[in-house]
Design a protein around this nucleic acid. Structure first.
Lengths: 343, 343
DNA sequence: CCTCCACAGCGAAACGTTTCGATGTACATA
DNA sequence: TATGTACATCGAAACGTTTCGCTGTGGAGG
């Protein structure tokens, strides 16, 4: 049987309250501190987190609610979040929505939130599937702080924190690269039109065109919507055949992968036939001679920022003066490759 | 303030013990069952997990201790483990060792184990870094069941469960593919010589050669040891120059990536110059025309099996009759590509 | 009719912590 | 000397569950 605070009290002759106070960072007489530490070592005392949680209503866990763990971008963030939360003493309760269609994903995201809530967490970090944030109403109502990563939910912007890159700027820089190389017939691929991130990146892309006085052809701005990965591959191939673009900008991880597949299927080579700027490091390292230009999100910083905000919110709330939500915007970086031909 | 079991008791007029019994699956009179359910709904009662844990010493969490989340192979397993554990009512406490050298990884794995132990978990699923299993002694001593994935630790084989593929068979199949295509000068790359998985795959590879009466050239069997990814790239390039192999077998995810980089750097093409069989789906989907033959591990099944074993062990132990450790071996599958030239 | 058993239900005592309000001490100030 | 203050310590009462051992009831078996 593990040692308890009572055993420490018995061994040191001190009261429970004193031990507890010291264990929680309070100040006690030097000789008592020494006695307590000796007893802790001798008895191999570990504080019982369950009892502490019961009393304080703090679990020391943060729920990390994500869509499927599908790409390196998410993974790197997850890893960093976990490391930083741990450094702050928080455990990370991982909870992914189930794979399937978008509608299933949205549904299971609600279940994922419910699950972490049932288990008990002090806060939630979320990469949302439900664009409207319905799934976050319950935690918010319960006073549990929420931090979003990668996306923003405008309806709830004043109640939740978020960490994102400057999507507009990132897309603008990517577009500039293609425009500087002389490309005018550019196919631009974005996620669904209702998708916050996708819309912002599309804005940035169009900004770049407009800034130079080039026309924006809405037909060449493709929103993938909620199509499956197979059908979006078909859509991309179709658009390639239709417009014969000299360049393609793919505005996220999946779209970049599918663009490469589509070009391969159409028998087109990068960059000789079509130039490409992609996202999130797809095709940057695969050893086939073509190294894609790629918008790289600072995953470590995103993860660290999310963990830090979360930790601050929780500790502030625990002391009774909850912090207002924070929004942090980081800069992405355009990593050079050899996938853009100058024309 | 959330409703408690006492509120249910007051509302229904029943005793605490009765409510608790019903909530834990016990049998009560039909009318009481109805009354309890009504009250639970009306008061929006949720059982307080902390109180339950305090009393039962079960936390409902499984610690998932991993090396860095670096590749899709691990991710898919993690995802599946998480889904299946959740279906059994368990939370997943993710805990990764910190990135860095192998020695740092081993050290931080100990810290990761300590952390989940401190937080309190009912079991641990682990992809070990420490080949000797030192990090698992403490949980084992505490009576916390451990399940390994991907690797095995012979010293502890009788005390912990594990889920792996048939590494020998998988490597043998891969080698057969190259041998059938007529290759004799094959470079074979494995992880460190002390690495259980690496050794088994090397055995399988050599088996295939011997079975056909071909000589095994130990110089062409490369163990990477604990080299960094940059220096192992150099090593591969050096060996390629030295032996001018017609084919390469790369026996894990990282080695396959580095093999492709090395070939690219050496100006060699797949499969015209060198044939390749890789591992874990690297190079299977990148849209450059070359699709690698690849040993695919059944990640979903591995994850499900690990979760299932864990759940069984925990529930059995909770009822006082702990189960003996289980070892489950699954079959990998050789996925065809176009990276092997017949000579 | 009596005994016995199975079964619901019950109260109370834990589980190990935190925290409130009170007590005691030492020391500075008037 | 009397008074006030700061501070370390303390006991006891929670927090919300599970579970042990008991009581009461209804019905089967003799």
């Amino acid at each position: 049987m593990a040692a308890t605070i009572k055993d420490i009290a018995r061994r040191t002759g001190l009261g429970l309250a004193t031990i507890s106070k010291y264990l929680n960072g309070g100040h006690v007489l030097p000789q008592n501190q020494a006695a307590i530490e000796e007893a802790v070592r001798a008895l191999d005392y570990k504080v019982n987190e369950a009892a502490r949680t019961l009393k304080t209503r703090r679990t020391g866990y943060v729920g990390l609610v994500l869509p499927a763990l599908t790409n390196s971008f998410i993974m790197e963030i997850v890893q960093q979040i976990q490391l930083d939360l741990r450094a702050c003493g928080f455990g990370t309760a991982l909870c992914c929505s189930a794979p399937g269609t978008d509608s299933i994903r949205r549904q299971t995201e609600l279940e994922a939130i419910d699950f972490v809530l049932k288990k008990g967490v002090d806060g939630i970090i979320n990469l949302p599937q439900n664009e409207d944030g319905v799934h976050l109403l319950k935690p918010l109502e319960m006073g549990i702080p929420v931090t979003l990563i990668d996306k923003q939910i405008p309806e709830l912007a004043d109640r939740i924190s978020s960490v994102m890159i400057d999507n507009v700027g990132a897309a603008r820089t990517a577009a500039d690269e293609l425009l500087n190389a002389g490309h005018r017939n550019i196919l631009a691929l974005f996620h669904g039109e209702t998708n916050y991130t996708g819309r912002r990146r599309a804005e940035g892309f169009m900004d770049a065109l407009r800034q130079r006085g080039y026309p924006v052809d809405p037909d060449r701005i493709i929103y993938m919507g909620t199509t499956s990965s197979a059908s979006s591959l078909d859509l991309i191939r179709e658009k390639i055949r239709q417009f014969r673009p000299t360049a393609i900008f793919a505005a996220n991880f999946g779209l970049t992968s599918r663009t490469l597949e589509a070009l391969e299927a159409e028998g087109l080579r990068v960059p000789s036939d079509v130039s490409v700027v992609g996202f999130d490091g797809v095709g940057v390292n695969d050893g086939y001679g073509v190294k894609l230009w790629s918008v790289m999100q600072p995953t470590v910083q995103i993860g660290s920022a999310a963990a830090q905000i979360m930790s601050e919110q929780i500790t502030a709330a625990a002391q009774g003066n909850p912090l207002p939500p924070q929004v942090r915007t980081l800069q992405a970086q355009l990593l050079p490759g050899n996938s853009v031909r100058i024309i």
